[in-house]
């Protein structure tokens, strides 16, 4: 995972509540065994007029011109403006992989589903929770502006419109550090392997039936 840098980019508005991970990337693409290459299948059912299958050449598929990400001004969007409960449903990490591969680095919403929120951070995508009036205001700006630009600063925990509003957001310190520095969590945990072994010793004494291997 690359360290997360401060950036300014176009924000695309997806004005829909309860967007589920089946919509973010449909099930047929979960048959693939790679961690990359899902960007063309992001929001596949909404983005294309035909039925997509893994391996399709998406450059020749008929586009749904009405869909927000097919509008020319949002093709280079790196921020997705979302509504309540974004990422609900299936735990598939393919959803953040597809968002990442499309080019999204940050998502803004009033709320995210728990599993999806964690999955995003593991892939360097920053899910930012803002208050409803703030999200409503950004949607209004996106509707007015030819292409709303927003600046995301993780160090300061702020979202700002250049020359306009600035909103602060919360993130837990450990996750912030991991995303900021692009840390490998497995290495961090393995550095504490002694603690894990110590725990296992205690647990083996209190619940021995969970350690049939001895």
């Amino acid at each position: 995972m690359k360290p997360f840098q401060q950036f300014c980019a176009v924000a695309a508005p997806l004005d829909r509540i309860n967007v589920d991970t089946d919509a973010i990337v449909p099930k047929q693409f979960m048959k693939l065994i790679s961690k990359y290459g899902y960007g063309d299948y992001l929001f596949d059912n909404w983005r294309y007029l035909d039925q997509g299958e893994p391996g399709d050449d998406c450059s020749v598929r008929p586009l749904n011109e009405q869909f927000v990400l097919n509008q020319p001004r949002f093709k280079s969007a790196q921020i997705l403006l979302c509504r309540d409960n974004f990422g609900c449903g299936s735990s598939r990490e393919h959803a953040p992989w597809a968002l990442r591969d499309f080019g999204f680095k940050a998502l803004l919403s009033t709320s995210f589903a728990d599993i999806f929120y964690g999955n995003c951070l593991k892939n360097g995508i920053l899910p930012i929770v803002l208050a409803k009036p703030e999200i409503d205001h950004l949607f209004a700006l996106a509707a007015d502006d030819a292409a709303l630009h927003l600046e995301i600063n993780l160090a300061d925990q702020t979202v700002s419109q250049p020359g306009g509003v600035t909103y602060r957001f919360e993130i837990d310190a450990f996750r912030k550090k991991c995303v900021m520095l692009g840390l490998d969590e497995i290495s961090l945990t393995l550095a504490q392997a002694d603690d894990v072994r110590l725990y296992e010793g205690k647990r083996r004494a209190t619940e021995p039936w969970l350690f049939p291997e001895g």
């Binding site: 599993i115 964690g118 999955n119 593991k122 945990t189």
Partner: peptide
Amino acid sequence: GIGTSEIEHVLAT
């Protein structure tokens, strides 16, 4: 439920 990165984390640690 967990994501794939977490599956790997649990496998390893």
